[in-house]
Simulated scan of single mutants.
Amino acid sequence: MATYVLIPPAGSGPWYWHLLAAQLRERGHDVVTVDLPCDDDSAGLVEYADAAVRAIGDRTELVVVAQSFGAFTGPLVCDRVQADLLVLLTPMVPLPGEPPGQWWGNTGYEQVRRAQAEREGWSPEESDDPRVIFFHELPPRLIEEAASRARDQSGTPFEKPWPLDTWPNVPTRALLCRGDRFFPIEFLRDLVSSRLGITPDEMDGGHPVALGRPQELAERLEAIRQDVCGVDSTRT
C-alpha cells in the first residue's frame, strides 16, 4: 500500500481531489489531500510545505502528486520527507531561486497563450473564460460545484524566490494532459525537457484532470508508480 499525497493547484482545496482520492482508496491506498493555506496572506511556500508535512505525519511509502502551481510546493515537501516518487501533474516547473510570479514571463507563457488563441480563433473573452480554458471537459453540474468550491489565492507565495538550490533527491516524473488549454502540451513538453531533463508522460484530458478523468488518472499514476518503484499496482 502506498500513501498518495495530493497537493492541489492554486486556489483549490482538498475537494479538488475527491474523485481521484476515491479511486486511489478503492485500489487499497492511503490518501492525504493537503489543505494549503492558499487564502492566507501571511503564508508563503515554506508555510505551504509546512502544511503538507504536518498532514503527512508519520506515513511512509509516499507518492507526492503536485498539480500546476502545486509543483512549487511538491519538491519542498520531498526535500523534507522520505518520498518514493514525485509526480508533477500539468506543472509549473520551478527553477532554483525563481519567484513563482516571474515564472510566466521567464517561460514565455503569455506568447504561447496568444498564439493558442489565434490558432483556435478564440476571442479575448473566450481566452479568459474558465468554461473554455479550464472546464471544457466537465459536465455542468461539476462545473457549478467546482466554481462554488473555488478559494481565494493569495499572491504572497508568488513573491519570494523558490527556496531550493537544487532539485530534491527523489525520482521525479511529469504527467501532462493533451487537452490542457491552460498549459498547452507543446509548451509543457518543452518546459519539462529544458528544466528537468526528462521526457514527460502524457494522457488525455484538460487541466482539471482529477475532476474530468479521475479513473484514468488513477490508472496512470499507478502505472508510473509501478514503473518507478517496481511494485504491483493491481487492485487489491
Rank of each mutant, 00 (worst) to 15 (best):
P37Y: 01
D41Y: 04
P163C: 03
E186S: 00
E144I: 02
G11E: 10
P130S: 02
G212V: 14
R80C: 02
L221I: 14
A21T: 15
K160T: 11
A71R: 08
D201N: 14
V5H: 06
T172F: 06
T90V: 12
G105A: 11
R54T: 09
G74N: 09
F134G: 06
Y48I: 01
I56P: 07
P91S: 11
H207P: 15
R114K: 13
I133H: 02
G108E: 13
P184L: 06
A21H: 11
I7G: 06
L88A: 06
C78W: 01
S127M: 13
L36E: 05
L196F: 08
V81E: 00
T107R: 03
R114M: 06
G28E: 08
R178Y: 04
D50F: 06
A21G: 12
L196N: 10
A52F: 01
A43Y: 04
H29F: 02
L138Q: 06
P184C: 11
K160L: 11
S42M: 01
D180P: 11
D58L: 01
P171F: 06
L164T: 13
R173A: 09
P99D: 08
H207T: 14
T60I: 02
Q226T: 14
R151Y: 05
V112D: 02
G121P: 07
A174Y: 02
V209P: 15
V63Q: 00
T166A: 10
E144D: 12
D39C: 01
E26F: 02
V64K: 04
G212F: 14
T236S: 05
D40S: 03
A174C: 15
S68E: 07
P14W: 03
E137S: 05
V228P: 12
M203A: 08
G108P: 13
M92F: 05
R54Y: 00
C177S: 15
Y16D: 04
P91R: 07
G179D: 15
N169W: 01
L89D: 05
W103S: 09
L188M: 15
E98H: 08
P100A: 13
W104A: 13
R113D: 00
S233G: 13
T60R: 11
W104K: 15
A210C: 15
L188A: 15
P99V: 09
S154R: 10
P214K: 13
G121H: 10
G70F: 07
E186I: 00
V192K: 13
F182C: 10
P161V: 04
E137A: 03
M1S: 12
V170W: 07
C229K: 11
A22Y: 04
L36R: 10
D40K: 14
A218P: 12
D204K: 14
T60Q: 06
H136M: 03
D232C: 11
L95M: 07
F135C: 00
G121F: 02
W162F: 14
R151K: 15
Y109S: 09
E26Q: 05
V31W: 03
S68P: 05
R149P: 04
F72R: 07
E98Q: 15
R80S: 03
P37N: 03
P75C: 01
G28M: 08
R195N: 02
G197W: 04
P75Q: 05
Y109I: 09
R59D: 07
L188R: 14
A150S: 11
V5P: 10
G205E: 06
V112F: 00
D227Y: 09
V192C: 14
